[in-house]
Design a protein around this nucleic acid. Structure first.
Lengths: 153, 153
DNA sequence: GAAAGTTAGATGAAAATGCATCTATCCAGT
DNA sequence: ACTGGATAGATGCATTTTCATCTAACTTTC
């Protein structure tokens, strides 16, 4: 374990910027969705993951890891999704502790409606980037370095 | 108002990465601070802002804007800081609705102790960036575009 | 200078989040 | 097959965050 070192001005500035940018964009997006009567942004991540998984479905613990949910938080969130008919769950045959979640038709419709709003918001907030590719690569290296799965697609 | 457009793959990837990176780093830093018996990361932002402001102090609504706090949340947070003796507050003479906050000696000590942990964590998580400057510039453009004040220093 | 509108900040109630713990299963070593 | 440990997920409880609203002070307009 090498000795702890202080960050450079540049590194600190980056970290501060990362936080401010994320927070401000996230909040304003979430506000727009709410104003449209749609579910909060965090639901979108789940719905989209379910949609990509298709008919095989997804295990909660996978979502927990790839989307960085708190386990207890995710557990309740998933129940709400099921209660509202956006997802359905089934016992996972190979491991009876677990379950599998799949998107319902309603869930798909809601996700699409969300994307109609969410997509353009991403473009609006992030679009002005001159070199998104390079920046993303930098962020991705952080993410991978933290052991988070990265969807190349 | 020009028509809403969908984001490119690249823009979306950037936004996803921004979220994951921020969340994962933030959580792990916060966990370390807690393990050391220190206040949560969000307090640091306030303490540091107070320290930079020096003896003139800071108005809560300024913190609200520059650090992106929810007003009601900040209000309670500040009371806790005062209760724990990390900050002291005074009525703001020129506008008797408002108040001014200043750091106490204890507050300064705590901030320093936090920085001993926090600084190296920034370095550890962010340090590996090859080109932090470029990335920061990109993020800063977003932040400024969202109307948030940016501390050049 | 009175009325109408704004802004700073506080606060009750609701919602979200996090923490600790629990149960049920699964897996590994013996 | 049995025991000890790990893992998936749920849930009670505490804390944090948000939402809506309130009060008091300031500002603007007429």
């Amino acid at each position: 374990m090498k000795p702890s070192q202080s960050p450079s001005e540049e590194e600190t500035a980056f970290w501060v910027a990362l936080n401010l940018a994320q927070r401000s964009i996230y909040r304003s997006m979430d506000a727009v969705l709410k104003a449209e009567g749609l579910p909060p942004l965090r639901w979108y991540d789940i719905l989209w993951a379910l949609e990509r998984a298709g008919r095989c479905g997804v295990r909660p613990f996978e979502l927990e890891r790839s989307l960085l949910f708190e386990q207890s938080n995710l557990s309740r969130l998933l129940r709400r999704l099921v209660d509202e008919g956006l997802a359905k769950e089934a016992v996972f045959k190979d491991d009876r502790r677990g379950k599998v979640l799949k998107l319902t038709a309603k869930g798909r419709r809601i996700r699409e409606r969300m994307w109609k709003i969410y997509g353009p918001l991403i473009r609006a907030h992030v679009g002005p980037l001159d070199d998104a590719g390079k920046v993303t690569a930098a962020l991705r290296s952080i993410i991978v370095g933290n052991g988070i799965a990265w969807q190349e697609n």
